[in-house]
Structure formats: structure tokens, C-alpha cells
């Protein structure tokens, strides 16, 4: 009898609970809190600066909250900020980026997933040689390849246009995405593939009816990886497109770092925040999947 009452909780049992406010814990959480503040500070500064008027910025403190909140800098950054002779704001760059992003993401994922599937399930002689070259190629600095690619694109008649840039994103997205898909498809049970073969399904049949529906998570991971990567690209955008097709990052840099005129720091920060908004939304919305996507690059193939 006495034993059962002890089990029911009148006596302490189970592992000894750790003290919540030990000196060690205060140190631990204190350090993490300080570091978090340091990491969060730039985002906070961007937000408060973009909500202040210019007189308030000249007076004071970058870290102080705005006394009078104004959304004018946002409107100005979006619709009126000037790059060169164009004064239609960042909206142009935003839509350019969208127009680059959508076909690039679709094409690169389509190509890489089919390729990864072929490498995982339909290996042919010599496939590994090309795959190794592809993976090693990911380490070659882009600067080595950018000029010959300009020539290639010019020969194809794609230089300066949207599709040339889409092609470049597809090419340079290929190593990491192919690795991602190949590893995922290799880890899928082989019986599935064999059963489909016995039922007479061919290369494309198995891909579309079995592999594709069963690997939606990895497609989401690939999409997160590509959307943030392509949206954040600067180098390819500035090299392979003409000024009226510049993606948002390039236009942002031109707006903020242009030498003419009075510097309007609040408009600059609003523009910066606008450009960072797309990857930030994806990051905060996707959570663990984002981590999985970037970790995929770290896992050795």
C-alpha cells in the first residue's frame, strides 16, 4: 500500500529535476540572448530606419524607435526611387526578379530531378564520370566561367535577355540539386521501382506516376533552395541581363550606391528591406525545411 502511494507522487521519484536558475543556466541563456540581440539588430535597424522621416534620422540615433511612423519611404522606394534615368522605383526590379525566378526555378528543378532520377535508378555506363565532374564543377569559382558563357549565350542569341539568365541559373543550380535528388531517390526502397518495372512502366512512367508523387518534400526543399538562391543572386544578373531587365538586387544596389542626389537613408533602408522580404518570408514560413535545404549542401554525396 505504502509503495503505491509513493508511486502516485507523494514521494519524489524519477530523475532529479534541474534547478532552473542555476548560475550555469543564467550564463547560458544570457550568452544566447546577447548573441541573438546582435544577430537581430540589423533587421530591427532596417525596420525602424525605414519608418522614420529624414529630419528624425538626421537628429538621432539609428537604434531609437521612430517617434512618428511614416510609410512614405516605403512608397517612395517601391514606386519613385531613381536608377539612372528611370524613376519608377524598385517595383521594376521586383517584377524582373519574379519573371526571372519563376522559369528558373521550374526549369532547374525539372532538369535536376529527372537527372537525379536517371542517376539513381537507370545508371548507364559513364554516368558517374559526368556526375563527378558536375559536383567538382560546383567548386570552380564562377569568375572562371563567366566570360566564355557570355560568348556561348551570344552565339545562342540569348545574351542580355531573360532566357539567357534562366539558362545560367539552371546550369549553376544543377550540381547541388542533382545531388539532392539523386540522394533522395537512391534512398527510396528499390522494391517499389522493381514492382513498377514488372508492371511494364517505363522511364517516364515511373518518374511521373511513382517517384514524383512520393517525393514532394524534397521538391519543396529544392524549391526553397532555388527561390532564395536565385532571388539573392547579383553577379549573374549584372552580367547576363540588360539594365531594363536587372533583377531586384542589382537595382537595389544601383539605387542605394548611386552618387548623385541627397542620400535618403530611410528610402534606402525601405528598399533594402523590400528586397530582403521575399527570402525572409520564405525562411520564416518554411522553418525546418530551409535548414534541411541548406544542410543538403553540407552532406557529402
Amino acid at each position: 500500500m505504502a509503495d503505491t502511494t509513493a508511486q502516485n507522487g507523494s514521494e519524489p521519484w524519477g530523475p532529479k529535476p534541474r534547478k532552473r536558475f542555476s548560475r550555469k543556466n543564467i550564463m547560458l541563456y544570457g550568452t544566447l540572448l546577447m548573441v541573438s540581440i546582435y544577430y537581430a539588430l540589423p533587421l530591427y535597424v532596417m525596420i525602424v530606419t525605414s519608418l522614420k522621416g529624414m529630419p528624425e534620422i538626421r537628429m538621432g540615433n539609428v537604434f531609437g524607435p521612430p517617434m512618428e511612423i511614416t510609410f512614405e519611404p516605403w512608397v517612395k522606394a517601391w514606386a519613385e526611387a531613381c536608377t539612372g534615368i528611370n524613376c519608377d522605383g524598385l517595383s521594376r526590379g521586383f517584377w524582373n526578379s519574379v519573371r526571372i525566378l519563376v522559369p528558373s526555378v521550374i526549369l532547374s528543378i525539372a532538369v535536376a530531378s529527372v537527372n537525379g532520377y536517371a542517376l539513381a535508378n537507370w545508371k548507364f555506363k559513364g554516368a558517374d564520370v559526368f556526375f563527378t565532374i558536375l559536383i567538382l564543377g560546383a567548386f570552380i569559382p564562377y569568375q572562371v566561367m563567366i566570360y566564355p558563357i557570355v560568348i556561348l549565350l551570344r552565339e545562342l542569341g540569348l545574351y542580355g535577355g531573360l532566357w539567357g539568365l534562366v539558362l545560367v541559373h539552371t546550369i549553376f543550380g544543377m550540381p547541388i540539386l542533382t545531388l539532392l535528388f539523386r540522394n533522395y531517390f537512391t534512398a527510396m526502397p528499390e522494391e517499389l521501382f522493381k514492382a513498377a518495372r514488372v508492371d511494364g512502366a517505363g522511364f517516364w512512367g515511373i518518374y511521373f506516376r511513382i517517384m514524383l508523387p512520393m517525393s514532394l518534400p524534397i521538391f519543396v526543399v529544392a524549391m526553397i533552395l532555388q527561390v532564395t538562391g536565385i532571388w539573392n543572386d547579383f553577379l549573374f544578373g549584372v552580367i547576363y541581363t540588360k539594365p531594363d531587365l536587372y533583377p531586384m538586387t542589382v537595382q537595389l544596389n544601383n539605387i542605394v550606391n548611386s552618387v548623385q542626389g541627397v542620400k535618403e537613408y530611410n528610402v534606402n533602408m525601405a528598399a533594402t528591406l523590400l528586397t530582403g522580404l521575399v527570402p525572409l518570408v520564405i525562411y520564416f514560413a518554411s522553418g525546418k525545411l530551409f535548414v534541411r535545404g541548406i544542410a543538403a549542401g553540407a552532406v557529402k554525396g
Binding site: Y39, D233, N253, T272, T275
Partner: peptide
């Protein structure tokens, strides 16, 4: 909090 900067582009990072 510690990872969000990695989602931002170098351009945004540099300007901030």
C-alpha cells in the same frame, strides 16, 4: 534568429 541572416543576399547584408 541566428540563422535568418543566411537567407538574406550579400547585397542586403552589405547595405544594412
Amino acid at each position: 534568429i541566428l540563422l535568418y541572416p543566411f537567407a538574406l543576399s550579400f547585397i542586403v547584408t552589405g547595405l544594412v
